[in-house]
Design a protein around this nucleic acid. Structure first.
Length: 660
DNA sequence: CTCAGCCTTCTTTTT
DNA sequence: GAAGGCTGAG
């Protein structure tokens, strides 16, 4: 169906910028162009400003395809585009927005030849990258050498790529333990790089490095895209890394209409190479920059903001700033010592029910924590009390074994030289383990046409596995032929076929929670119906950040529920009432980050958590613990202890007369 | 030599 | 609850 829109005259937008924005926001939105740095504190209407800015650009005649919006999550991008459309009252065709990885993926699928790749390359997620490193290690590792494991190597390599620091420089600095084996590590990395290229695989970092190479090494490409994207808007600039900043610089090359939005106080991704020097040094890099500050907070009560300000002020490295609230004073934030994690769960559960009884919807309540495992007791407690909740942490949807299994089948069809996927799916056949899978791969990798050759490999398989292997071949046959002939096999049909021709049985025989897993795959199938290309479907799945949930039009699944989330995933969101649990020294801040000298980053994380709350804030910490090592007493978090006493009110919790 | 199943260990944060 | 290591069965 084709839609026609009547072109409106510029005034047709009817946006009253002066009325709908405050003075600070208004100046940003109306600014003519050039490099802009917008320092936007928490809750100061950052999204609003960005979306109005985009609307304004469109209104003054910029075409949608000449605007690029780079965000931190796909969700943020979608949200912003949705709001732009709402503002101007119609669909905006051609407006580009997404994460760096997403846009990189999109461009590289168009220009893969220029970076030495073949079409249909697969994307390695964290675990794949780790597995591939382990494979590379087997060739290099000698008996007594103390080489790091694949997972460590993967981290090391990723950090080096994202920070633009070589391996030999980064090891003494971040991984001094391995200073003796730098040569071996370098060999392994080289092998890894080569393998990715021959197997037609890109890891997450390659989506950035190859994107940068594409722009840096090809003048015509650089000129084309930097001319095309007349206006660049980068959200969460404080969490970009060196590589991403370089890409932005290359893209801004021609027009220099670059608007970077961020808040140095909310930089929480340095473990991933984010460098908030990017934001601090932005003015040096762009001398003609105009700097804006948004300091009026619309979200939180003055009481909550007071506490947040008192916390962040203890950081040395920052642009000092103070947010002021426009709301009326409310309740003091509560500090709640609890006996142990069970009492903590009990307290939070009961408080939630109380709020709910007073008429607050559950959607306005969130519980935040530093690490996923801290939510376990609470999950059990909420279950027990019948409080619906949604967990937004832990294993991502697409990282779960059953999802990856399905994807691996699809991946070998698109990229027949995907070693990891071949090995993965081969091992699903009963009777085939690592050894046989490796033999199969060995034969596959030598063959001209793996998808044909695999059918001749029956003799490599042990007798007891033959039946299973034949079923496996049948499956592949359907997937493959459907794909080749006339592209009749749509992603959704492929998923469906896998499920109904064996994988369902596999799940039932291997997992007690097979039904849930099947439900997940069903959801994936539904999601797949939006795609006509396997290749695009697979890469989108790999880059999908949201936990697979709420991919819109999920049939009425927006039942009321409490959100449980890590602080990292809560960035950019807000709730009426926020509980922060597990505020103990060693947990939040975590011991590991204290060792690596990132206390300030942990404090920023605490700041992010606190500033999610609109009206009610609870800071909870258990006093004792029955955990394995440090049995006995826990100390309250330093972030709590350093708070001035006039910023909170302490609550004492006693066991009541509740009958179990 | 291969595989599967049971055991222990250990939980940062994520595109 | 998951992932890796060890052991015993085939």
């Amino acid at each position: 169906m084709k839609k026609y829109y009547l072109r409106r005259e510029p005034s047709g937008f009817k946006l009253n910028y002066e009325k709908e924005l405050n003075q600070e926001q208004y100046t940003v939105v109306m600014h003519p162009g050039g490099p802009m740095l917008v320092l936007a504190g928490a809750g100061t209407g950052k999204t609003r400003t960005v979306t109005y800015r985009v609307a304004r650009l469109l209104e003054t005649g910029t075409r949608p395809e000449n605007i690029l919006l780079l965000t931190f999550t796909n969700k943020a991008a979608q949200e912003m585009m949705r709001r732009v459309e709402f503002l101007i009252g119609r669909n905006v065709q051609g407006l580009r927005g997404g994460t760096f990885h997403h846009i990189g993926n999109m461009l590289l699928r168009r220009h893969y030849i220029l970076v030495g790749y073949k079409g249909g390359f697969s994307i390695l997620d964290r675990e794949d990258s780790k597995d591939l490193f382990d494979i590379c290690l087997t060739g290099i590792k000698k008996k007594d050498t103390l080489l790091p494991k694949g997972s460590v190597l993967s981290d090391m390599h990723s950090l080096s790529k994202n920070k633009g620091i070589s391996i030999e420089e980064i090891i003494p600095f971040r991984f001094p333990h391995f200073s003796q084996v730098i040569e071996e590590i370098k060999q392994t990395v080289t092998l890894y790089e080569r393998k990715k290229q021959t197997l037609n695989l890109m890891d997450f970092d390659d989506l950035l490095t190859n994107w940068k190479r594409l722009l840096a090494e090809n003048e015509n490409i650089r000129e084309y895209y930097s001319a095309k994207f007349m206006h660049l808007l980068v959200d969460e600039y404080q969490d970009t890394n060196k590589l991403q900043a370089e890409i932005v610089d290359l893209l801004a090359n021609t027009n220099r209409n670059l608007m970077a939005v961020g808040d140095d106080a909310q930089s929480i991704y340095s473990f991933r190479g984010a460098d908030f020097e990017n934001i601090l040094k932005f003015p040096e890099k762009y001398r003609d920059v105009t700097i804006f500050s948004l300091t009026t907070n619309y979200r939180s009560t003055p009481d909550i903001l007071h506490l947040a300000n008192a916390s962040i002020i203890q950081n040395v490295q920052q642009f000092p700033k103070e947010l002021h609230s426009v709301k009326n004073s409310g309740n003091m934030p509560s500090l709640v010592p609890l006996r142990d994690v069970f009492q903590q769960a009990d307290f939070v559960g009961q408080r939630i029910l109380d709020f709910n009884a007073d008429g607050m919807t559950l959607n306005e309540i969130a519980v935040l924590y530093r690490s996923h495992y801290q939510s376990m007791e609470l999950q059990m407690e909420l279950q027990r009390r019948g409080v619906p909740f949604e967990v937004r942490s832990g294993l991502k949807f697409f990282e779960q074994a059953h999802i990856k299994d399905i994807l691996s089948f699809l991946r070998v069809v698109v990229n027949p030289y995907d070693e990891l996927s071949w090995k993965r799916i081969a091992r699903l056949v009963p009777g085939i383990g690592n050894i046989t899978a490796a033999k199969l791969w060995d034969a596959i990798s030598r063959s001209e046409s793996p998808l044909d050759a695999i059918f001749e490999m029956g003799r490599l398989v042990p007798k007891k596995a033959v039946d299973g292997f034949n079923l496996f071949l049948d499956l592949l046959k359907v997937l493959n032929e459907g794909g080749h002939e006339n592209e009749s096999l749509q992603p959704a049909a492929a998923v469906d076929h896998l499920l109904s021709h064996g994988y369902e049985d596999y799940l039932y025989s291997h997992y007690p929670n097979a039904a849930e897993r099947i439900e997940d795959i069903e959801q994936m199938r539904r999601f797949a119906t939006k795609y006509t290309s396997l290749e695009i479907f697979i890469s989108d799945m790999s880059l999908q950040s949201a936990s697979g949930d709420e991919s819109d039009e999920g049939e009425g699944d927006d039942r009321e529920c409490v959100i449980l989330s890590t602080v990292h995933q809560a960035k950019g969101l807000e709730w009426n009432t926020v509980f922060i649990i597990g505020l103990n020294d060693g947990k939040f801040p975590s011991v590991r980050s204290l060792k690596t000298d990132s206390e300030e980053e942990e404090r920023r994380l605490f700041y992010v958590a606190v500033t999610r709350a609109k009206d009610e804030l609870y800071l909870c910490y258990p006093i004792t613990s029955e955990e394995w090592q440090g049995l006995g007493f826990l100390r309250p978090s330093r972030f709590v202890k350093e708070l001035p006493e006039n910023t909170y009110e302490e609550i004492v919790v006693e066991d009541g007369d509740e009958v179990p």
